[in-house]
Design a protein around this nucleic acid. Structure first.
Lengths: 217, 217
DNA sequence: ACTCTATAGGGTAAAAACAGCTTTTTTTGG
DNA sequence: CCAAAAAAAGCTGTTTTTACCCTATAGAGT
């Protein structure tokens, strides 16, 4: 059968994963991978071709331009393109965050290839794909009606810098020196992030930030 | 050209990555993927076929049976099979550790597909594949002659359990309660792990353990 | 009997966590 | 343009947890 294939693109910073996925999906005969990109900025460069992808598979944590930002850019500049988020983790915040940024679905990288193909077909035809993972989060979000609790986490550049430096053996004093700020200011950042992530220790913060795909080690 | 293809197997717990890689390598026409497995135990089950892989691509951190253990098992039971370690991180300890366990090479998951194919061909013909990553570590290991410093890290079950519980918001007191041990014993574990990982803080320990692929979040 | 290891202990100094408040800078709306 | 408001940065504390000493005992194996 030779129906029209679905044109997609893949944005992920792990080359082997990205290219492997491209070949895997091409094999299905229903999907055509137009291009792949290393991060959001790379994707924008490659999006100038005459034929546009219908669906873009989007990693979240990436260097230079991450999944949240890239998805927002797509909604602003190419609202007809559907974004399917791909993540390693099933935390509330990145799921809600990617949906709010404009993604039409959210899949785990642990998924089976057949399920990913279904999701791509679903999102291409209906602009969204709601699996149990997403519907569960959405439902609980509505039931609990706790918009603050599951709000996606927004960090300013300094907080993000601090968070990255937290993933180390450095003391807060050393981090303060590196950021040319007073240890007291660093303590304010720490306090703010503890509240946003609902944690009580630096270790909890680091683990939570990793699971929420805000930083990478 | 229709020479004999190299038979390989892929052991990795991320389904999409594993299957994507399988298709990517099959495409090269020089490699035939016999099977793929979710972890070491799964691999052993699937290794009973009549035709054996010449090379096995091996992830390190996996549930049930990890890459170190699986590689050792292969060296004991099927020494003719070559293992190529695949990792996200280029830390000393997992590289030295996998080589000591019997791997013939070590590649980053960030590598390009062409380089991976070269490595597989190299390891199939010569039983090892030494790239700059590995040779650099080996050279420095010899030059510094610090066997202790770069020794692969071995943990007993209690230390590993403690390490996993460390990746959380729990205090050491709470961890002690959960493991039914005195806080002082927990402090001994902490001290031992700090030395093994050469760190000075719990956060440093957690990051180091993740980079050394001893735990997974 | 001796060594080795896992467990447990006491004590201390540093770092982290938490609270409440002031000053400076930036934003922004009249 | 100026002043109010908001945000960011900085300070003074206290309490809890962590990090790092050094010591002791019970059991396993030699």
């Amino acid at each position: 059968m030779q129906t029209n294939k679905i044109n997609i693109a893949i944005v992920d910073d792990h080359t082997l994963f990205r290219q492997g996925l491209a070949h895997l999906l091409t094999e299905s005969n229903e999907i055509n991978v137009l291009f792949d990109a290393d991060n959001g900025a790379d994707m924008i460069k490659k999006l100038c071709g005459e034929v546009m992808p219908e669906v873009i598979l989007m990693d979240i944590t990436m260097p230079i331009m991450d999944g949240y930002e890239t998805t927002k850019w797509l909604k602003d500049n190419h609202p007809e393109i559907n974004v399917l988020a791909l993540s390693m983790f099933e935390e509330d915040k990145p799921i809600i965050g990617m949906l709010k940024s404009g993604a039409g679905g959210y899949m785990l990288k642990q998924s089976k290839a057949a399920d990913l193909v279904s999701a791509i077909k679903g999102i291409a035809s209906q602009s969204f794909y709601i699996n149990e993972l997403v519907s569960g989060k959405l439902l609980r979000n509505i039931q609990n009606n706790q918009p603050v609790k599951n709000a996606p986490i927004g960090l300013n550049p300094n907080e993000l810098k601090f968070l990255e430096l937290c993933c180390s053996d450095l003391t807060y004093k050393q981090i303060a020196d590196m950021m040319n700020l007073s240890p007291h200011t660093i303590d304010n950042y720490r306090e703010a992030l503890f509240q946003k992530f609902e944690v009580k220790s630096r270790t909890g913060l680091v683990i939570s930030a990793l699971k929420n795909e805000l930083i990478k080690i």
